[in-house]
């Protein structure tokens, strides 16, 4: 009643069925993992969202100013305190030259003595 081709067909059916089942199970597993990853991402995004709001709340300029006034006594930075990068070295050079001339005059005075 059953010849060779029937057995081959049944075997192929069994093989493909097993393969389909295995792949399906793996896909379900991966799908669950993916869903978990999505949930984690959403959770972290929500946490970051709240932390951003909290950071904005904690770094309110009025709060920072009150803390600075209470603990450091620092003043507002006036505009004239700002200089360019080049001017910093320019001022250093001037200071160095003044220091050099002061030291040479001291040396001269001590030699005279």
């Amino acid at each position: 009643m059953f010849n060779k081709s029937t057995f081959v067909t049944l075997f192929a059916l069994f093989l493909l069925g097993s393969l389909t089942y295995t792949i399906k199970q793996k896909v379900i597993e991966l799908d669950n993992d993916l869903a978990q990853v999505h949930r984690n991402i959403a959770h972290y995004q929500e946490s970051m969202h709240i932390l951003n709001a909290e950071w904005a709340y904690l770094t309110r300029p009025s709060r920072l100013q009150a803390l600075v006034e209470e603990h450091t006594g620092l003043q507002h930075c006036p505009g004239v305190s700002l200089v360019s990068y080049e001017e910093v070295f320019q001022q250093d050079d001037e200071l160095y030259q003044a220091q050099e001339s002061l030291e040479s005059s001291v040396r001269l005075a001590s030699m005279r003595r």
């Binding site: 949930r39 995004q45 969202h49």
Partner: peptide, 12 residues
């Protein structure tokens, strides 16, 4: 798909 899923889950 991942992008869409994330967007749909985190909705503010």
């Amino acid at each position: 798909f991942v992008h869409d899923a994330v967007r749909s889950q985190f909705h503010q």
